[in-house]
C-alpha cells in the first residue's frame, strides 16, 4: 500500500540519527521481505550483535504484556534502552490480525529510550512472526541495549523463541489449568528463567511447588536450538545454570527488579561460560540454513520451466509417476538443461 519517498539508505541514516518514523518504516520494509529487506539487513549487519535478546513466552492470560511493560520500566530505571517486539497471531481465515499488546504497555509512551512494535505471525506457527529475527536485527543495529520479544500466547509446542533469544523467560500463572499441561512438550525445557506471575492470587505457591518438583525430576536433558547442551543429574545441579523461579505481580511491579536481576545474571553466566558463543553459533547456523534454503528454492524455481512443471503436475495427477520420482526427474532435467551451471 505504501508510497516511499525516501531511499533505504536515507531511511537507515535517519533512523541511526534517532528518527523514529524512519526506524518504523525500515521495520515495515524488513517485515515485508524481498530484495529491499535483504538490502537493509545487509547494510545493518555490521552494527548488530550488541543487544541482549530476551524472549517472554507463556500461555495466554499469564500476563506477558504487563510483565514486558514492567521489565522495560525497570531497565529504563537502570539507564538501558529497550526495544520491544510484541507478537500476536494472524487469523488463518482472513489474513488479518488484532494486535492488542499495546493496551498493557501504555506507561512506556513518550520515552525516547523505548520503541514498541507489534507484529502479526503472518502464517508462521512457532509462536513468532516470520520476520521476527530480521526485526530483532534492525532494533539491535539501532543500538537498543535490551530487546524484549513477547511471543504469541503459547500452549505446548511453540518454542521458536529458543533459537531467537539469549534468555528465555517462561511465564506461568496460578489457576490456569492442570500442571501436566506444561510438561507435555518442551515449553519447560526452553526456560532459562521461570516467572509465576499474579503471585498475589490463590494457588501461587502450588504453581511454584509444581515447577520446583518438575525441575527436580531427572535426568534432565536441556535442549537449546535443537542441540543437547548439557544433561543434569537428578536433583543435583552442581554445574550449569539452574533456572530460577521468580514470583511477580507485574501490575504492581512486584518482583520485577528481581526478574531483571535474574536476566542480567543469566547474561553474565552466558558470557563467562562461553555458552553465549555456542548459542550465537547455533543461531547463525539456523539463520544461514534458512536463507540458503530459500535462495536454493528460488534459484531452482526460476530454472525449471513452467511447462516442465505443469507436465509433471499432470503426470502425477494421472498417477503415471509418484511425486518423489517426479522431483528427482525435475532436478535432473534442470542439471542437463543448464550445462554451464553444472560442476
Amino acid at each position: 500500500m505504501r508510497r516511499h519517498g525516501a531511499s533505504t539508505t536515507e531511511l537507515i541514516t535517519a533512523a541511526q540519527g534517532g528518527d523514529r518514523r524512519s526506524l518504523a518504516r525500515l521495520i515495515t520494509l524488513v517485515e515485508n521481505g524481498g530484495p529491499t529487506a535483504e538490502r537493509i539487513l545487509q547494510t545493518l549487519f555490521p552494527s548488530t550483535g550488541r543487544a541482549h535478546i530476551v524472549g517472554v513466552t507463556g500461555a495466554p492470560g499469564t500476563g506477558k504484556s504487563t510483565l514486558v511493560n514492567a521489565m522495560a520500566r525497570e531497565y529504563r530505571n537502570r539507564g538501558l534502552t529497550v526495544g520491544i517486539i510484541a507478537i500476536d497471531p494472524t487469523s488463518p481465515f482472513s489474513g488479518g490480525a488484532l494486535l492488542g499488546d499495546r493496551v498493557r504497555m501504555r506507561d512506556l509512551v513518550g520515552d525516547e529510550g523505548v520503541f514498541i512494535r507489534s507484529m502479526a505471525t503472518r502464517g508462521s506457527l512457532g509462536g513468532l512472526a516470520r520476520a521476527t529475527d530480521d526485526v530483532i536485527q534492525v532494533l539491535d543495529a539501532m543500538g537498543f541495549d535490551r530487546i524484549l520479544v513477547e511471543t504469541v500466547g503459547v500452549g505446548q509446542a511453540e518454542v521458536d523463541i529458543a533459537s531467537s533469544a539469549h534468555t528465555v523467560i517462561v511465564v506461568e500463572a496460578p489457576g490456569l489449568g492442570d500442571d501436566i499441561q506444561a510438561i507435555k512438550a518442551g515449553i519447560l525445557e526452553i526456560a532459562d528463567i521461570f516467572v509465576v506471575n499474579k503471585a498475589d492470587r490463590e494457588g501461587a505457591e502450588r504453581t511454584v511447588m509444581a515447577l520446583q518438583a518438575m525441575l527436580g525430576l531427572g535426568p534432565r536433558t536441556v535442549v537449546h536450538h535443537g542441540q543437547t547442551m548439557r544433561v543434569e543429574e537428578p536433583g543435583g545441579n552442581t554445574q550449569g545454570w539452574t533456572p530460577p523461579i521468580i514470583k511477580t505481580v507485574a501490575t504492581r511491579g512486584e518482583g520485577v527488579p528481581e526478574l531483571v536481576q535474574a536476566v542480567e545474571a543469566h547474561r553474565a553466566y552466558l558470557m563467562e561460560t562461553g555458552e553465549l558463543r555456542q548459542r550465537e553459533e547455533a543461531r547463525v547456523t539456523h539463520g544461514l540454513e534458512q536463507i540458503l534454503r530459500e535462495a536454493l528454492v528460488q534459484r531452482l524455481v526460476h530454472r525449471i520451466s513452467p511447462q516442465a512443471l505443469d507436465q509433471t503436475v499432470q503426470r502425477v495427477l494421472a498417477r503415471e509417476v509418484d511425486p518423489y520420482t517426479a522431483v528427482e526427474e525435475l532436478l535432473h532435467l534442470e542439471e542437463q538443461g543448464e550445462p554451464q551451471a553444472a560442476r
Binding site: 482472513s94 488479518g96 492488542g100 499495546r102 501504555r106
Partner: peptide, 14 residues
C-alpha cells in the same frame, strides 16, 4: 474486529 476480518493488521490501543 471487523477490520481484522477484512484482512487488515489492526493495532488496538485501548
Amino acid at each position: 474486529r471487523a477490520l481484522r476480518d477484512a484482512g487488515f493488521e489492526v493495532i488496538y490501543t485501548g
